[in-house]
Nucleic acid binder design. Structure first.
Length: 750
DNA sequence: GGACGTACTTTCTAGACAGCATGTC
DNA sequence: CTAGAAAGTACGTCC
């Protein structure tokens, strides 16, 4: 089917022809035939890179040309910006007819909101599913103007964490805009028809790919495909390294999936010594530039390790990296400078980062309840599907590694030739229902118990199950919400002020209940930073740190020593709860270190986490401390004095990772925890003090460039040429390399 | 003395969304 | 109730 033949405005057709797209892929053509451009609902369950985005684009552009508005829902922030950037290239397309201006695109995620004064004035809005939920909870008016909804990666309905949110959000949207077109995009799953049926849509089901994908299993020096075999030369002890070197020889790049961060790092190191031998001069030079960039953007040991790998043309990638390092690795790989990325499943879904060959070094993942477990077929397909760059690689290959003939046949049967699992709604659990029942009632989608049941009947859960099975759980949730003062009334369900606040703060009602309870119990004379930090760390919305074997003794001692700082009496060390309690305290200690200005390097070593993790922990903690602050405002009369101001201060300190004395300096744009500390320790403790100092002094401390910016920021024009010296980067890097510091939590506390 | 080999023991375990109001080193 | 890979340790062998 030709693009030209489609019922679309001419400007749209010209746009695609100009970008070299003339012919639709078969699944796209099928979607058109099934009414994509006629407002029909649709579920496209097709492989990655088979043109799902284009399919969605066509529908959105068609809708906008008819005066509509589109919402594009994605599961990841990174994906949101990727789509946002893509859709912005439409700005030149005059879809809306002459004189109506160009197409406008907005983005809304937790950490990034479009600059547009009013998000709703855009024609396309890209948002994460949680943000969409939050916008609904805040009764955003333009939600009703949406005429087309695209849901990317709907198979996430199956996720226990985030599936229920997506499900309830879609149910609400369908209730709100009954005439709205829904286009759902999914990986190939077992029961795609069931999802399509729930969405009252037609199904486009296909395995078609633009680039051929060969899936094989490596055993004893050969990759075995269906009907063919490829010999791999043994250049080292390590099978995966040999497969990798073989790919490089053919001019391809490799993506290696590992089951843990540690393994991904160690593979990148190990492969590095061999990969380095294959690099030519220009590549080495390009890599050296990346190495410098990595060092500049890192304050930890991990940065040095990454730099060492990148110098050799390899890299690792996992959620512990900071965002700069992630970007450098991803871009370096796209530019074909970095030859291999050894990664945890971070790269399996989401970002568009294909490679010639994918090596899956472990198809098992650790589960605390069941030990090492084989990953789902769906996850395997996502990883294997990364192989083969459309238009660039002649083909893609994915390789599993087996140690025996039996294992190999097992892998063929259970992965390569297997169908992906069915998707199952996870809305039935108390955890999921508690929060979504509250939001449903707060938003007026249900005002009685019967109304609530009617709403639940419209969910995917009800589509798959009999709802009588969860009646008990629903009633338990309603009781919970009543007991904790978030809901009142028996026949009519009315949200209280607290209930509304909890819903709009986007926290779990259980978190809300813990916090309110803790605030009421806290006694003024015992309250420390730890009191409040531990309070938010025991909340189900907080992510918790693991307890390692060596931590037990230390954490135990800390709990004993600081026992009166907690709002509750710590459980006895023999009780099961004690295990949890220790993890909460350990997490609180990390945040405590962060706000006491411990360096990132120290924190990452002490707690065995990455820079990215520290920021992630701080991020959640800040959100929960903000929520605590708002809740404290609501129950102020029932609390000890001074708690409110303490909470507010902590919120700021977590945001900046700074002690109280730096709050004034740190709120200046361009000044963070590190620079503020330098200024403060040199006697420049306030904005006033800086204003009355001279730029030369400040330059000595934070560098001439930043100093100039700082003075501009404070409304002082900098007439003077800043004095001061050049960069200290080299010496700093050296010293951090030389330092032999403590490596575990216990070393630090002694 | 030291590089390497082997067998046994210990250790550790993926990812990432949200509020609010604008910017870290 | 359930795992398995890598890193660490202790000891042995060969040059």
């Amino acid at each position: 089917m030709k693009i030209e033949s489609l019922d679309l405005p001419e400007s749209v057709i010209r746009f695609y022809l100009d970008s070299g797209i003339e012919e639709l892929y078969p699944p796209q053509a099928e979607a058109i035939e099934k009414g994509l451009l006629e407002g029909k609902n649709l579920l496209a369950a097709i492989p990655t890179a088979s043109g799902k985005t284009l399919l969605a684009e066509l529908a959105m552009l068609k809708a906008i040309s008819n005066g509509g508005k589109a919402l594009y829902i994605v599961p990841l922030r990174a994906l949101a910006s990727e789509k946002f950037d893509r859709f912005r290239t439409f700005s030149s397309v005059s879809v809306k007819g002459e004189g109506n201006g160009g197409l406008r695109v907005g983005i809304s995620t937790g950490d990034f909101e479009s600059r547009d004064e009013w998000l709703g004035s855009n024609d396309i809005i890209v948002a994460t599913s949680e943000k969409t939920d939050s916008l609904l909870r805040n009764e955003t008016s333009w939600m009703q103007e949406i005429t087309t909804i695209v849901v990317d990666e709907v198979h996430l309905l199956d996720s226990a964490n985030r599936g229920p949110t997506l499900e309830v959000t879609l149910t609400k949207l369908m209730k709100l805009n009954p005439g709205c077109q829904i286009i759902a995009l999914s990986a190939t799953v077992g029961n795609a028809y069931e999802i399509a049926d729930w969405l009252k849509g037609k199904l486009v089901l296909s395995e078609w790919r633009p680039t051929r994908l060969q899936e094989g299993v490596y055993l004893n020096g050969n990759i075995n495909f269906h009907g063919s075999q490829k010999r791999i030369e043994a250049r080292s002890q390590d099978d995966a390294v040999n497969i990798l070197l073989d790919t490089l020889e053919e001019g391809g790049q490799c993506l290696v999936f590992e089951s843990s961060r540690k393994n991904s790092v160690s593979f990148a190191k190990r492969a590095g010594t061999k990969v380095a031998e294959t690099l030519d001069k220009p590549t080495r030079k390009a890599l050296d530039e990346l190495v410098e960039e990595i060092i500049e953007n890192g304050e930890t040991e991990a940065a040095n390790e990454l730099a060492k790998c990148v110098r050799n043309g390899t890299a690792f990638h996992h959620a512990g990296l900071n965002s700069a390092h992630r970007r450098i690795v991803e871009d370096g790989f796209r530019a074909n400078k970095i030859k291999v990325i050894s990664s945890t499943p971070t790269l399996a879904a989401g970002l568009n980062l294909p490679a010639r060959r994918v090596i899956i070094r472990s198809y098992r993942r650790y589960d605390p309840n069941y030990g090492m477990q084989p990953i789902p077929v769906l996850d395997y397909k996502q990883m294997a599907g990364r192989a083969g760059r459309p238009h660039l690689d002649p083909y893609g290959e994915s390789v599993l590694i087996a140690k025996s003939y039996n294992e190999m046949t097992g892998l063929f049967d259970n992965y390569i030739d297997a169908d992906a699992e069915d998707i199952w709604s996870k809305l039935g659990s108390e955890n999921a229902l508690r929060t979504h029942i509250l939001s449903t009632i707060v938003n007026g989608f249900a005002t009685t118990r019967d109304g609530l049941l009617e709403f639940i009947e419209a969910t995917f859960f009800a589509h798959q199950n009999d709802t009588w099975g969860i009646m008990d759980v629903v009633d338990e949730c309603l009781d919970f919400l009543r007991i904790h003062g978030m809901l009142e009334g028996e026949d009519t369900l009315l949200p209280t002020v607290l209930g509304r606040l909890v819903s709009t703060l986007y926290i779990d009602p259980l978190s809300g209940a813990y916090i309110v309870d803790g605030l009421k119990k806290a006694k003024a004379e015992n309250i420390t930073d730890m009191t409040l930090l531990h309070l938010i760390c025991k909340t189900p919305d907080m992510r918790q740190l693991y307890m390692r074997a060596s931590d037990y003794e230390v954490i135990n001692d800390i709990i004993m020593a600081r026992s009166d700082e907690f709002v509750e009496i710590p459980p006895r060390s023999k009780e099961v709860d004690y295990e949890w309690f220790m993890a909460e305290v350990k997490t609180a200690l990390l945040v405590e270190d962060w706000i006491n200005e411990k360096s990132l390097d120290q924190i990452t070593k002490k707690f065995g986490v990455g820079e990215g993790d520290v920021h992630a922990f701080a991020d959640i903690a800040e959100w929960l401390m903000h929520s605590t602050s708002r809740l404290a405002g609501l129950i102020a009369p029932e609390m000890a004095k001074d708690i409110s101001s303490h909470v507010a201060l902590l919120e700021k300190r977590i945001h900046y990772g700074a002690s109280s004395d730096l709050i004034e300096l740190v709120s200046i744009r361009g000044i963070g925890r590190v620079r503020a500390r330098k200024l403060y320790d040199s006697g420049l403790k306030t904005v006033q003090a800086i204003k009355s100092s001279d730029i030369g002094t400040v330059s000595e401390l934070i560098g001439p460039k930043t100093a100039r910016k700082l003075f501009e920021e404070l409304g002082l024009t900098s007439g003077l040429r800043p004095s001061g010296s050049g960069d200290g980067i080299k010496s700093e890097t050296m010293s951090s390399l030389m330092e032999r510091e403590q490596s575990t939590f216990s070393d630090f506390e002694k």
